[in-house]
Simulated assay, not measured.
Amino acid sequence: MAELVSLDTVTLGGVVETVPFADRLRLIPNIFGRLDAAIGQAGFFYVGPQTALYRIEGDQMEVRAGVPLDAPLPGFEMFEAPGSEALMHRHRGGFDGLAQVYQDLSAEIANLGRMRGTWAREIYRQVARNADLNVVDVYIDVTKET
């Protein structure tokens, strides 16, 4: 069940890249690999939760993948996850189920008489070798009623 929530602005450090929308499924894992490498090079064994923001402009998708940092570190680009009102769903299971979550959230936004905002974001609460144990909070920013 989706829930309407307010998100605070959060400063993150990580990787920012624009990829062709058509190639996103092939290219996004590389972005997370670069984030994981930066975390390792900074000497952390864990920092999180990892957050990804996605914004589509034309045939391009901006991807911001990061973690909360107290201060800038080499290898991390600092950026904001802007505050917003968003529709949220907690997904449990494999990442292959996320496409359906986005479809369901988009339909719910329309049912609420709202419009989709700028960003979609995923906060990875739990990622496991056994995909059944994954927990990802999926958010789609919404604007006021149409």
Rank of each mutant, 00 (worst) to 15 (best):
A86L: 00
D70N: 15
T51W: 06
T51L: 05
Q100E: 13
G94S: 15
A22L: 04
L73C: 07
A71Q: 15
I39H: 05
G33P: 02
L35E: 09
E85Q: 15
M61I: 09
G97Q: 06
F32A: 04
V63N: 00
G83Q: 08
L25I: 05
A99K: 13
G33R: 06
I31Q: 01
V101Y: 03
Q100T: 11
Y102N: 07
L98V: 01
A71V: 13
E57K: 06
D36T: 05
E108N: 10
P82R: 05
D36M: 04
V63I: 05
P82W: 02
Q50P: 08
F95G: 09
P29W: 02
R26M: 12
A38N: 05
A65V: 00
A81N: 15
T51Y: 04
Q41L: 12
L35H: 07
I56M: 01
D96H: 11
Y54Q: 05
P20E: 05
L87Y: 04
V67W: 09
T18N: 09
Q103P: 01
A52K: 05
Q103F: 07
A81T: 13
R55H: 09
P72A: 14
H91Y: 01
L35V: 06
G33S: 09
A107Q: 14
E77T: 13
L105D: 07
P74G: 00
H89S: 12
G94E: 11
T18H: 07
F79W: 00
G83H: 12
F95P: 04
Q100L: 11
L87T: 07
P68L: 12
